[in-house]
């Protein structure tokens, strides 16, 4: 089994809203898969469908080789889920909730539990009603990372965490990948996705509009080049876009395929100084966000 999550043409409607509109998502075993999209694009509905909490109106979803709607409880033994807005039982303590979720899943490793509580600096004796948003999130994260599972479904798991805890979270995701776990991580923090994920899917209006390895996606965006030349720059530079000339300085954007010819031409003109900005995930993402706004 190389594919842990496969959905084909998944459709889910709520009244007139089409939350999922033919979703095709594939997550291979062992990868950390970033799941990006603007608010309301259908990320949380995707998680709910993958957990079998909502039934799809059309299409097919396979999770760990099973049908999440039919085989939910059996499949859930092998996964852990962290929602973006963790609500807890106010009268139970954090430690009790971690244990309860572990027991409902079929057991958890007590040593790992203790280590994670220490790393996330969680006070397990406090009643959940007194936890802040970040602390509630930590309870869910400890419960998820302490579980001995094949798949982690993380839906905006770090909302409310402070930067130090964000670092701990990233370490935990990287350790999970090293241990051979598969992770589906939805997030709005692009640096978090860049630091942890090797594959990314972008969802917009219930459809996947972009999917692939981070390297391949970078390929789709333009590299920004600023160069100071020994001679007066030419008016036209084949393969370059948005060319701006100011004295002997030239700025432009270059598509991945045109990098080599453009740099050959610039070298002929004599390069005195150069800065090159690789494409960021943000650029890629903004393209789709802005398309959404239009």
């Amino acid at each position: 089994m190389t594919e842990v999550i496969v959905t084909r043409g998944l459709v889910k409607t709520y009244g007139r809203t089409r939350a999922l509109d033919g979703l095709d998502l594939t997550v291979a075993a062992g990868e950390v898969h970033g799941f990006l999209g603007p608010n309301g694009a259908g990320k949380s509905t995707t998680f709910r469908a993958l957990l079998g909490l909502v039934g799809a109106d059309a299409g097919e979803a396979r999770l760990l080789g099973g049908d999440p709607w039919r085989d939910g409880p059996a499949l859930h033994r092998h996964l852990a889920y962290v929602p973006g807005d963790v609500t807890l039982w106010p009268d139970l303590t954090g430690g009790e909730i971690v244990d309860l979720l572990g027991r409902l899943r079929g057991g958890l490793d007590p040593r790992r539990r203790a280590a994670l509580i220490e790393r996330f600096e969680l006070d397990p004796r406090r009643r959940a009603g007194t936890y802040s948003k970040g602390n509630r999130q930590k309870v869910a994260l400890v419960a998820a990372f302490a579980a001995d599972v094949a798949l982690l479904l993380l839906d905006e798991p770090t909302s409310g965490l402070d930067p130090l805890m964000e670092v701990v979270f990233r370490e935990c995701v990287i350790e999970a990948r090293a241990a051979g776990r598969t992770v589906l991580l939805s997030s709005h923090i692009l640096s978090e996705v860049e630091a942890t994920c090797d594959h990314v899917s972008i969802i917009r209006a219930g459809r996947i509009v972009e999917s692939g390895s981070l390297a391949a996606l970078r390929h789709l965006t333009r590299t920004r080049v600023e160069v100071e030349l020994a001679t007066t720059p030419p008016a036209a530079l084949p393969g370059a876009h948005d060319v701006r000339v100011e004295g002997q300085r030239l700025g432009c954007e270059v598509e991945a395929e045109a990098i080599e010819p453009v740099f050959r031409r610039l070298a002929e003109l004599g390069i005195r100084a150069i800065t090159v900005h690789p494409p960021t995930l943000e650029q890629l993402f903004m393209r789709h966000y802005q398309a959404e706004a239009r």
Partner: peptide, 23 residues
């Protein structure tokens, strides 16, 4: 006020019935 409580779940909170009973 809500005070502090146990740092781990006791035997009573073993599963669904334990949770429902607690609630």
């Amino acid at each position: 006020a809500l005070g502090t409580g146990p740092d781990a779940a006791g035997r009573g909170l073993r599963g669904l019935v334990g949770l429902a009973w607690r609630l």
